[in-house]
């Protein structure tokens, strides 16, 4: 566990120096948001549609940022060094933590911006925040493992979205469903079945990804 934190810190330090991933993911999110806002103009949108749009922005920004995380190790030929100093498990948790922090940072900026731009109230902020947090965990777990597969495959780029989409789709569908409820109703019951399903998804995918990572990493 200590090792995985070291790897996480190494990635953070590298990121602070280059800001490559953060810039690409954040700018991608802002560009998408602007594109949607521009094309809609001043029409007031139904919250059902807004919930779907928010998750589409989140999905594609996540996809644009995650593919770099292992690729940069392969490209700078540091993957073998990493293999020597840390166990696959440590590497996986370190990378997952990095992706999660990166995504949460972007969401922290983009979600309030989204609410401000489209000018609406979230009726149930607690449920909304839980959904976003769980969604971020699910997306980064699925994204990290697919990014690891892509880094080992010879062809890159477009394949990442193709592979990640079916794996991440439950997060998107459940996320949209819960966000719609959170935008509209002030329910007292917080842990509705959809949230339980999303939490179950996170647990299962994180566990499976942690178990399977070893097989990807060791050739």
């Amino acid at each position: 566990m200590h090792n995985s934190f070291t790897i996480f810190l190494k990635d953070i330090r590298q990121e602070l120096r280059s800001k490559a991933a953060l810039n690409s993911i954040l700018l991608f999110a802002i560009v998408t948001l602007t594109a949607i806002s521009f094309s809609i103009g001043s029409f007031a949108l139904n919250t059902d549609i807004l919930a779907a749009m928010l998750w589409i922005i989140i999905l594609f920004s996540a996809l644009s940022g995650f593919s770099h995380v292992f690729l940069k190790e392969e490209e700078s030929r540091t993957a073998d060094t990493l293999k020597l100093i840390a166990s696959p498990n440590d590497i996986f948790w370190g990378k997952l933590l990095f992706n999660l922090v990166l995504l949460l940072l972007v969401l922290f900026i983009i979600v309030p911006l989204f609410i401000a731009v489209f000018n609406f109230d979230v009726k149930n902020p607690g449920m909304f925040i839980i959904t976003i947090a769980l969604g971020a965990i699910g997306l980064s777990a699925g994204g990290t493992i697919v990014a690891a597969i892509i880094a080992k495959a010879s062809s890159r780029g477009a394949l990442f979205s193709v592979l990640a989409f079916p794996i991440l789709l439950p997060v998107i569908i459940l996320g949209i469903t819960i966000t719609r409820i959170a935008f509209k109703k002030t329910e007292i019951v917080l842990f509705i079945p959809e949230i339980q399903a999303l939490a179950a998804y996170c647990v299962i995918v994180v566990t499976a990804a942690a178990l399977l990572f070893e097989y990807i990493w060791n050739d």
């Binding site: 592979l163 079916p166 499976a208 399977l212 097989y215 990807i216």
Partner: peptide
């Protein structure tokens, strides 16, 4: 190796589609 990992990864997400989403 990679396609086996992907197949298993997809396999564990499929129950979510088959059992949860039709109920939602």
């Amino acid at each position: 190796r990679l396609s086996a990992v992907y197949s298993l990864l997809a396999f564990i997400t499929v129950p979510f589609f088959i059992f949860i989403i039709p109920r939602i």
